[in-house]
């Protein structure tokens, strides 16, 4: 996936200024940055929730800017949105079934999701509204996996969750990559994100302020890029 010099507006203001980044197949890329830096805006643009006509956004070589979000899922671009957004009037099982609505071929199924997140199996017929934050996040991830994504983008999955739960969720990530899924992870929890990522970008006020492999980035680099000092 490639993003080239992308400008993106959100409501009345400009959220992204000439952002360029690329993600190679099979990578895990982390995007970190403070609140409002534009990380979510980027993911939403790639997912198609925010429109971006023009050649700026490309997937596997072709421009996807004109496609509406639901079409991009058919291509294998799946977003686990910020705030989980599970469907409250559906059960856990039904949420997963909706995740598989696109019927993309692949190895993910409800049984496999249950084996990765056993807690979901226990709650299979409960209404999604009745789940705790961590359970809902697991459900949201499982729901995204049901689409058999080639590119899975996760927006702030650690938000509002206890550290132990976050550890558990991140434990599942390498397994997902091993399936052949490319991952882009937006995170406020810098430590967790850099621990799993192959490469990282840091966003500051709508621009890329730092990029590189986690092992090569010093704490000072990161702090400077994160806070703009």
């Amino acid at each position: 996936m490639e993003v080239d010099a992308l400008d993106q507006h959100y409501r009345d203001f400009q959220a992204l200024f000439g952002v360029s980044l690329h993600v190679a197949e099979g990578e895990i890329v982390a995007i970190i940055g403070a609140n409002g830096a534009g990380k979510s805006t980027l993911l939403k643009t790639v997912a198609g929730v925010l429109r971006s006509p023009g050649p700026s956004v490309r997937f596997e070589g072709s421009t996807i800017g004109e496609l509406r979000a639901y079409r991009r899922v058919d291509l294998g671009i799946v977003l686990t949105p910020e705030g989980r957004r599970v469907f409250p009037s559906l059960t856990v099982r039904e949420n997963l079934e909706v995740g598989g609505y696109c019927r993309r071929p692949g190895s993910w199924s409800i049984e496999r999701i249950f084996s990765v997140f056993p807690l979901l199996q226990r709650l299979a017929d409960r209404s999604a509204a009745a789940l705790s934050g961590g359970e809902q996040q697991a459900l949201a991830i499982g729901r995204s996996l049901m689409a058999n994504p080639r590119l899975l983008m996760m927006d702030e999955i650690s938000l509002g969750l206890a550290p132990a739960v976050v550890k558990q969720l991140y434990g599942a990530i390498p397994g997902i990559r091993d399936e052949g899924t490319t991952l882009v992870i937006v995170e406020q929890d810098v430590t967790q994100a850099l621990r799993v990522a192959d490469r990282a970008y840091c966003f500051l006020e709508g621009r890329v302020s730092l990029q590189g492999e986690p092992s090569q980035l010093t704490r000072d680099d990161i702090r400077a890029a994160y806070f703009g000092i």
Binding site: R68, Y70, P81, F87, S89, L90, E94, Y101, C102
Partner: peptide
Amino acid sequence: TRFGRALRATSDDREAAQLMAIND
């Protein structure tokens, strides 16, 4: 039905439904 689920999902959250390949 599958469509009925999609219907209920879209009623709940139109934008999230789009992320499930549902043409709202």
